[in-house]
């Protein structure tokens, strides 16, 4: 039983990372109805920007805020420059663009900051809180930050006019234009916000996994899995999904004999696929009811 709790706690700790990323994934999905494969790399790039700012002697929170701003502008620009001209291209062409962005950011980061692993500071310190070092001060801080971001997003989409306009633009672009919403601008805003949230995720994750160009590879995958598990229409669901993926992964590794440890990741993914076969819209996803 003791191992069980240990593993669950450990799962929650890593799950915090996934939840952070899952939130960013759902965010952009809400705004543009795309799963951006390059999101992890964009977050990694933002984290490098934060690292550079810290190297130049900026105080932590100044670097944090500045990075969020730069990321927002970057995301906004990418939408305007790269994706806008392809508005009417088929879905799969967009997918290729995402893959291209992935390659570009990965390669650029390696070129500018090289591939050596760099430590990244935590604003919360590294003291152990409980669970025998499983959940430290940083993990707790990270989870708190994730929840704050979640709350802010919820309030933004629920209670502000821009938030409502963004939801409308994503749900039904043609109708949105007919009520005077600038749909293109909304998509770019969505990209900007997603880039900022990605930056938060990257900055929170980097102290745990260390900073290097490939740090986001598997995390993005877990983030996707968490987002899809929770339901792509539900930011809260995504955060839950992220934690769930962390716990499932840990338990699968411990309790499934022989192959468990070797196949942690595939087993977690397989479980998620099983959940989806039973509940195709995710655990908390909303089925859009439509009358013909």
């Amino acid at each position: 039983m003791e191992t069980f709790f240990q593993q669950v706690l450990g799962g929650i700790a890593t799950g915090g990372i996934y939840a952070c990323m899952a939130l960013a994934v759902v965010m952009i999905y809400q705004a543009i109805h795309h799963l951006n494969l390059a999101q992890g790399e964009m977050a990694m790039f933002s984290t490098f920007i934060a690292w550079q700012l810290l190297q130049w002697g900026f105080p932590y929170w100044a670097a944090f805020v500045l990075t969020l701003g730069i990321s927002f502008a970057g995301g906004f620009l990418i939408e305007r420059v790269v994706l806008k001209p392809l508005e009417n291209a088929p879905v799969l062409s967009h997918l290729v663009i995402f893959i291209a962005l992935y390659a570009i950011f990965n390669s650029l980061a390696g070129f500018i900051w090289d591939f050596t692993v760099k430590p990244f500071p935590s604003p919360f310190g590294t003291a152990a809180l409980f669970g025998e070092g499983l959940i430290g001060a940083h993990q707790a801080g990270m989870i708190l930050v994730t929840l704050i971001v979640l709350f802010l997003l919820f309030a933004f989409f629920r209670y502000t006019r821009v938030g409502l306009a963004m939801r409308a633009a994503a749900a039904n672009p043609e109708s949105a234009r007919l009520v005077g919403i600038r749909v293109g601008t909304m998509a770019a805003l969505g990209w900007g916000m997603a880039a900022s949230i990605g930056a938060v995720a990257g900055i929170m994750i980097a102290p745990v996994v260390f900073l290097e160009p490939n740090m986001m590879l598997s995390i993005l995958l877990y983030g996707f899995a968490g987002a899809v598990l929770g339901g792509l229409t539900s930011p809260g669901g995504a955060v839950f999904g992220g934690f769930a993926v962390g716990v499932i992964e840990n338990l699968a590794g411990t309790y499934i004999p022989v192959v468990g440890a070797e196949l942690k990741l595939p087993i977690a993914l397989a479980l998620i696929v099983v959940v989806l076969v039973i509940k195709p819209n995710g655990l908390f996803g909303r089925t859009v009811v439509q009358r013909v």
């Binding site: 001209p85 290729v96 663009i97 291209a100 570009i104 390669s107």
Partner: peptide, 13 residues
């Protein structure tokens, strides 16, 4: 890698 990405984007354009 960046070149590869740029070529992809150009082709799609």
């Amino acid at each position: 890698g960046a070149m590869y990405g740029l070529i992809m984007i150009l082709l799609i354009y």
